[in-house]
């Protein structure tokens, strides 16, 4: 396999079809290791991975931590409380300080779009975007794709309905880029207030009526209503939102009979998804998504490892 041609993973946009497929293949190959009793390998032995999370996260951070550890890396978690950070100068300061400690890979989540890219320009190690503002969340899109591919055997030609708060969703952006690149048909379902004004330019079909949007869909990807990113009122109430856009079995019946339901988590039960749907193992892929999260991150770390230095001074002083 050709080495991954990027030093950082900052987004799905800019990745080629081959880049994506090679990451998915690699991730698939880790599933066995991940289910074995001895889960450890030594691809990243001696390497240091730092999780730098400016925004709270449970699953993404622990997923990266496990991925790093299973590949033999030393993992350090740094949760920077946003409240104690005085804007982005600290971001650059923190980046430069951390860089001086010679980590090999920095995994960064930040509340500002573009912040991870900015940080990547200031460090000599590899950087993985674990979510920046409302911009991208590339590993989420990769794990979603792997989940779909393992379920359906392919991604090309799948009808994927992404439903909910598209406007504030980095998951939606990364997924749209990835799914379009791999040849799936993407539909976006949301009220107009939760869609970007220029959503049509994504090359996806737009629906405001959820039942019409779900018709014959293979995959129903629900998004979390991101109340923390909302300024002002985008919807009148969560009750009304659930009525129109909450996924229950009645609405799901419009999709294909074997349709898969996905959610990046954490879920707002009773807001965007009915518990009965979320917990039904026949349709819900939510736990598979979490499992695939670890192998996808192992694949990303492995791919980036081919670019890591061999211990030479990272520019400047010893």
């Amino acid at each position: 396999m050709a080495p991954f041609p990027h030093r950082h993973l900052l987004g799905i946009e800019g990745l080629s079809r081959d880049d994506i497929l090679s990451l998915l293949d690699l991730a698939d190959s880790f599933v066995g290791q991940n289910r074995a009793i001895d889960k450890k390998s030594s691809v990243l032995r001696g390497r240091t991975l730092v999780n730098l999370f400016f925004e709270a996260s449970t699953r993404t951070q622990s997923s990266f931590e496990l991925a790093g550890k299973r590949l033999g890396a030393d993992v350090m978690n740094m949760s920077v409380r946003t409240s104690s950070v005085s804007k982005g100068e600290t971001l650059i300061d923190t980046a430069i300080t951390l860089n001086a400690m010679r980590p090999d890979i920095l995994v960064v989540r930040h509340q500002s779009s573009g912040a991870v890219e900015l940080l990547s320009q200031k460090v000599t190690c590899s950087v993985v975007n674990a979510g920046d503002g409302t911009h991208e969340h590339p590993t989420q899109a990769l794990l979603d794709a792997l989940t779909m591919r393992r379920r359906f055997g392919h991604i090309e030609g799948l009808e994927v309905a992404i439903c909910g708060d598209i406007l504030h969703s980095r998951v939606a952006r990364s997924n749209i880029h990835l799914l379009k690149t791999l040849g799936a048909n993407v539909r976006l379902i949301a009220p107009k207030t939760l869609l970007p004004a220029h959503a049509t330019s994504f090359g996806a079909e737009i629906f405001h009526d959820m039942r019409k949007g779900l018709k014959d869909a293979d995959v129903v990807m629900m998004l979390r209503l991101q109340t923390e990113r909302m300024t002002g009122s985008f919807i009148p109430s969560t009750r009304e939102y659930f009525h129109a856009y909450g996924l229950d079995f009645e609405k799901l019946a419009h999709a294909k009979p074997n349709a898969a339901v996905m959610h990046p988590g954490p879920m707002n039960r009773g807001v965007e998804i009915d518990s009965a749907v979320a917990d039904d193992k026949r349709v819900s892929m939510i736990h598979d998504q979490v499992e695939m999260g670890v192998v996808v991150r192992m694949a990303v770390l492995t791919a980036l490892a081919s670019h890591l230095g061999n211990g030479a001074p990272a520019g400047g002083t010893q």
Binding site: G114, G133, R173, A197, H198, F202
Partner: peptide, 21 residues
Amino acid sequence: AAGGVMNEGELSMRLGLPGIP
């Protein structure tokens, strides 16, 4: 314009930045 940081349009949408219409 509240919260907006660049022109509202296709580019702001791709960059994930709030737009000023």
